[in-house]
Nucleic acid binder design. Structure first.
Length: 780
DNA sequence: TAGTTTTAAGTTTTT
DNA sequence: CTTAAAACTA
């Protein structure tokens, strides 16, 4: 049992525990993943547990993959254990047993947007905002394991109207044969409750059940566990109430608080030794979350001790914030590479001291920049791009939110499930085929989702000739693609009805990709998007190609198609793509960092209204504090916090106050730089702008080209270094490179005239518009 | 009615 | 500044 020797006594106890239910309260960085993975292996090796009888559930695909991989490293046989997310397990269950709830195994999973579309049909005279609100409430209801008939539904929304709409929605959803996210948990529970023999079959199959991040489980997930559990089985959950950050999604902290009562005989093991962060970092993190009431109470100890003081930087605006991060990161990497430049001497007086003294070379990937909302990533992306700093944005779902991708996925969904009303509505008349709303309504009402049924309807009803022709085109295209799934040969049936479609040059590869390409071309959707994409070149067609490429990993069969669609619905992270490799800075939301760790972390946007948001009070505010805690405890060696004096929102610049958390945090444990607002002890006053600004401007080679800090720093007062002079070279986001041809003093300050290499000429007030105008080259 | 232009509105966090 | 809804034109 060599592998156990790496564990501390509590961890060993947790690994070797059997029998009664076990609740492991694992603080941040206390090695809980190691405990779970070791436990899986230990059960197999030492207790002779059949790997196939082990079920381990997590909340993210990434965590599931990591857990499986690490368990396999200890014991190969762990590869046979079922390690999945809750939702993926639910989908797996429903594919096999959904028929017990009237569900065909060919169902597709509707995402939130699809739900809104379907609900929009039911609430056709309501504004879209209200539809969204209702969709959210239905989702919460399912998280709470509440059906339309449930009296407790008033917890979600007291009105009778909501109950009616929920009822209609469920009926309509059942008609499509598809499920939403909530169903993936709720329906399996209902099936097991209604079919005891099925339930006992699953209880017999999974003798060991483990749950990671249990603090994020919702009520429905708790019910699912209860169904899977029996006293003959072993149940072990791991969680940390201080890291519960998904309340808005239905997570129920009480699940973990009340676990011992719900599962009698529960033993509790606490893991309170933090191996990840320095003591300084841990103190910063704890000092904020300490303001929360109602915690289980752990005392997390830093095994590593000491460490550098975390840095709190007050910056003028978000562009400075991005520049600050960029310079901080670039300096640490350059310092590590041994290329200590003279300009770092200046920097070393300020915040960059620690980094440039660093003995260990820093890699780009040592760094993570954290923000509250995805929208905030933009500043960092542009700044890093400009400076040549490699970065990776984690968790951005943008690809799957693109119109062209949704279009193609809708076609594929309709192919997989001909009753998919949402997909049909989206695509039947796109590109335009003369099938208007009236026709669509008639088809949907009759459920005539096939060429034959539509023809029948045309015979008896009064569809216009135009609509009839359009429907024929659409259905023959679908049928043709479907025949590819069955026997691999396109039918080309009744060729006269097929329109000649402009080809866009999409290339078919292996597996399912041929079908995806055929569908994109034949439906005319590829040509449609090529035409509507004049501005961005052929990016949209390129995206369609990307989707087709992704499909090449799947078999060109009905099963392969379902697998492909399910994978896309449940895991949109695109982590497994080639982008994952390579040395790069991580840009990530606070939420997405859970379970991750980085040597150096920058927590940005610590302003009231951004983090926490202004509308957060009570329990919601406590959740924001936990989010702060999660972010800070990701850091191993160095932690930085940034806060801006003004922030651009909706294109307008608004003054902002420091985050509440900056008043709560243990300030003595921070090194504060920049212009701190009144009341912050230890402020260095305006010391930030000069030192930092100079270093920004003068390092102009290779990756770090140009800086604009000096021009903007201080309240509209350019530092001596940042003064514009005739002949200065300039870079502008829109106009490119140019030179200053004149500087004139006006009463509002200097007016700079610039002649660009493109021939364009502009003038600007240096104190207002210096952001767009970046000085390049030396400034002395 | 299809497609474009104008105007208004609005940004959490994610399986 | 970006996106969605409403108004407008061919």
């Amino acid at each position: 049992m060599q592998y156990l020797s790496h564990l501390n006594p509590e961890q060993q106890r947790a690994v070797q525990h059997t029998g009664k239910p076990l609740l492991i309260l694992a603080g941040a960085g206390s090695g809980k993943t190691r405990v779970i993975t070791t436990k899986v292996a230990w059960l197999i090796r030492e207790r002779g547990t059949d790997p196939r009888s082990i079920l381990a559930v997590t909340f993210t695909n990434k965590a599931a993959r990591e857990m499986a991989e690490r368990a396999r490293l200890i014991d190969e046989r762990a590869g046979d254990a079922m390690i999945r997310t809750f939702h993926s397990f639910g989908a797996w269950f429903l594919r096999r047993n959904g028929n017990l709830a009237g569900l065909d195994s060919g169902f597709v999973i509707y995402d939130d947007d699809d739900v809104v579309s379907l609900l929009g049909v039911i609430m056709d005279d309501s504004p879209k905002a209200e539809v969204r609100e209702t969709a959210y409430k239905i989702s919460r209801a399912k998280d709470l394991f509440l059906s339309p008939g449930d009296p407790e539904l008033v917890l979600v929304e007291p009105g009778k109207k909501f109950r009616n709409i929920y009822t209609l929605y469920e009926e309509r959803l059942a008609k499509t044969g598809n499920v939403d996210f909530g169903d993936l948990i709720k329906k399996p529970v209902e099936i097991m409750r209604g079919h005891p023999e099925t339930a006992s079959r699953f209880r017999g199959r999974f003798r060991v059940i483990m749950v990671d991040e249990y603090q994020d489980a919702n009520v429905a997930q708790f019910e699912l566990l209860k169904e899977l559990y029996s006293p003959e089985n072993y149940l072990c959950v791991v969680g940390d109430d201080d890291q519960s950050i998904y309340r808005f999604r239905g997570a129920e902290v009480r699940n973990i608080l009340e676990f011992p009562e719900r599962f009698p005989g529960t033993e509790i093991i606490k893991l309170e030794r933090n191996y990840r962060s320095t003591e300084q970092i841990l103190r910063t993190a704890s000092s904020v979350v300490d303001h929360n009431a109602g915690r289980l109470g752990k005392t997390l100890r830093a095994e590593r001790g000491g460490g550098k003081l975390p840095v709190l930087a007050f910056l003028p605006d978000q562009d400075e914030e991005a520049a600050y991060c960029a310079i901080l990161i670039a300096n640490s990497v350059k310092a590590g590479a041994g290329k200590r430049a003279s300009w770092q001497e200046d920097a070393s007086k300020g915040s960059l001291k620690d980094a440039s003294k660093e003995a260990n070379p820093a890699a780009w990937s040592d760094w993570a920049v954290l923000y509250r909302t995805n929208a905030q990533s933009l500043s960092f992306e542009t700044e890093f791009l400009r400076r040549g700093i490699p970065y990776r944005v984690v968790g951005s779902l943008k690809f799957y939110e693109r119109e062209e991708i949704k279009d193609l996925l809708a076609l594929l969904s309709f192919l997989a499930n001909p009753r998919d009303e949402v997909a049909f509505r989206r695509m039947v008349n796109k590109p335009a085929r003369g099938v208007g709303p009236v026709t669509v309504e008639r088809i949907v009402e009759a459920g005539a989702f096939s060429a034959e049924a539509a023809a029948d309807l045309a015979m008896s009803g009064d569809l216009s000739a135009r609509a009839k022709a359009g429907l024929e085109t659409f259905f023959s295209m679908i049928e043709n693609a479907r025949s590819l799934l069955v026997d691999g040969t396109a039918a080309e049936k009744t060729g006269k009805k097929r329109q000649a479609v402009k080809r866009t040059g999409l290339k078919a590869g292996e597996g399912l990709s041929a079908l995806v390409v055929t569908l994109a071309e034949d439906s005319g959707i590829a040509a449609y998007h090529e035409e509507h994409d004049e501005i961005a070149g052929n990016q949209r067609v390129f995206n369609l190609q990307e989707l087709a490429n992704a499909a090449s990993l799947y078999k060109p069969s009905a099963e392969g198609l379902l697998e492909f669609l399910e994978h896309i619905e449940l895991d949109r992270s695109m982590e497994d793509n080639s982008k994952n490799s390579g040395d790069a800075v991580t840009l990530i939301t606070f939420h997405n960092t859970k379970g991750l760790e980085f040597p150096r972390v920058i927590m940005t946007g610590l302003e009231q209204g951004v983090f926490p948001r202004d509308d957060k009070t009570g329990a919601d505010l406590e959740e924001e504090r936990r989010l702060f805690y999660v972010g800070a405890t990701r850091a191993m060696d160095e932690l930085y916090l940034t806060s801006c004096a003004v922030r651009r929102m909706f294109g307008r610049t608004m003054p902002s106050e420091p985050s509440l958390f900056l008043w709560e945090v243990d300030r003595k444990g921070l090194r504060i730089i920049g212009a701190a607002p009144c009341g912050f002890a230890g402020s260095t006053g305006g010391g930030y702008s000069g030192r930092y600004g100079r270093s920004a401007v003068s390092g102009g080679t290779g990756g770090i080209s140009g800086g604009m800090g000096a021009n903007r720093a201080g309240a509209g007062k350019p530092s001596s270094d940042g003064r514009w002079r005739t002949g200065d070279r300039v870079f502008h986001d829109d106009h490119g490179y140019g030179a200053v041809i004149a500087v004139r003093e006006e009463e509002d300050g200097p007016v700079i005239s610039v002649h660009f290499d493109t021939g364009a000429e502009t003038r600007f007030l240096s104190r207002y518009q210096s952001r767009q105008y970046t000085k390049i080259g030396g400034d002395s």
